[in-house]
Simulated assay, not measured.
Amino acid sequence: MTPTLVPHHPARDWAEIQERMLVPLYEAVYDRLGVGAGTRVLGLRCGSGLALLMAAARGASVVGADRDHARVELARERLPEAVTVTEEPPEGVPYDVITAFHTTDRLLPELVAVTRTAQPGTTVVLAGWGPPERCATEPVLRVGARLADRRPGLVTDLDGLVAGAGLRPDGSGRVACPFGYANEGSAVRGLLSTGAFDEAVRATDLGQVEKEIAEALAPHVRADGTVWMPNVFRYVVARVR
């Protein structure tokens, strides 16, 4: 049965439902890099700012950038005044760490533009889905690929992005990030907010996409109505040459 959904607000659904699913990834990266007082962090594709807030709570000096105006506005509402969030990365500001926790293959031009002016040795972290066999959400995301008539696939070529941006590889890691939702309706809203189904919505209609996501979620609905999908995310660490 298709769940009854509240109106579709992708930016707010991302902030209120989906973004917290990646907290283990943010924590693992910050722990590995020793992000803390004195660290200057730039968050690319920062969304509504949870990763920025976590870095700021560690004492880091934080700036975020995201081209989604609605998410930027939410980030500005949620974050302390000391955290700057813009739609384009500020120019001429030095950073110790540049993160892109929500990497897509379309990130390369943005990544090149930012790292071209970064100081040698600046740390860059890119993150994306892990192996499909380790991601329970993979069959659900295939719905979007099928409806949009494009090739399915979860794994962004993080190593290719590092090479394409002219960065020096410096390690990688994997982090368990299970997706857990209170009910099917929440799961559908959260997944829609990721952007993975945007092409499918444009190619068909929102109602059809919601229906098919709900059907694909059926194996992950537990007896109490909650939805649980174990996933593994991968990140790579690189340095500006």
Results as ranks from 00 to 15, higher is better:
230 P>D: 13
128 G>N: 06
119 Q>S: 14
103 T>R: 04
157 D>M: 10
110 E>F: 08
118 A>Y: 03
76 R>Y: 13
165 A>L: 11
195 G>N: 07
208 Q>E: 15
108 L>G: 06
48 S>L: 01
146 R>M: 13
186 S>I: 04
185 G>N: 02
61 S>T: 15
25 L>W: 00
178 P>A: 05
29 V>R: 00
118 A>E: 05
230 P>R: 09
157 D>H: 11
174 R>Y: 15
30 Y>T: 03
37 A>T: 05
150 R>Y: 08
119 Q>L: 14
173 G>P: 06
234 R>Q: 15
16 E>Y: 02
212 E>I: 06
206 L>G: 05
217 L>H: 04
76 R>Q: 15
172 S>E: 14
51 A>W: 01
224 D>G: 13
125 V>P: 10
233 F>V: 10
22 L>Y: 02
240 V>D: 12
226 T>C: 14
22 L>A: 00
44 L>E: 00
75 A>E: 11
205 D>V: 05
105 D>Y: 08
188 V>N: 03
175 V>S: 11
102 H>Y: 08
47 G>N: 03
165 A>Y: 08
69 H>W: 09
39 T>P: 05
140 V>D: 11
5 L>S: 07
11 A>S: 09
189 R>T: 01
97 V>I: 04
116 R>W: 12
200 A>W: 07
64 G>K: 03
229 M>Y: 09
119 Q>C: 15
61 S>I: 10
27 E>I: 02
174 R>W: 15
52 L>K: 01
58 R>W: 02
62 V>Y: 05
5 L>Y: 06
205 D>Y: 09
118 A>T: 02
124 V>T: 10
47 G>P: 00
13 D>W: 01
115 T>G: 12
29 V>P: 00
47 G>A: 03
179 F>A: 15
192 L>R: 04
75 A>N: 10
69 H>S: 13
207 G>W: 02
155 V>F: 12
54 M>W: 00
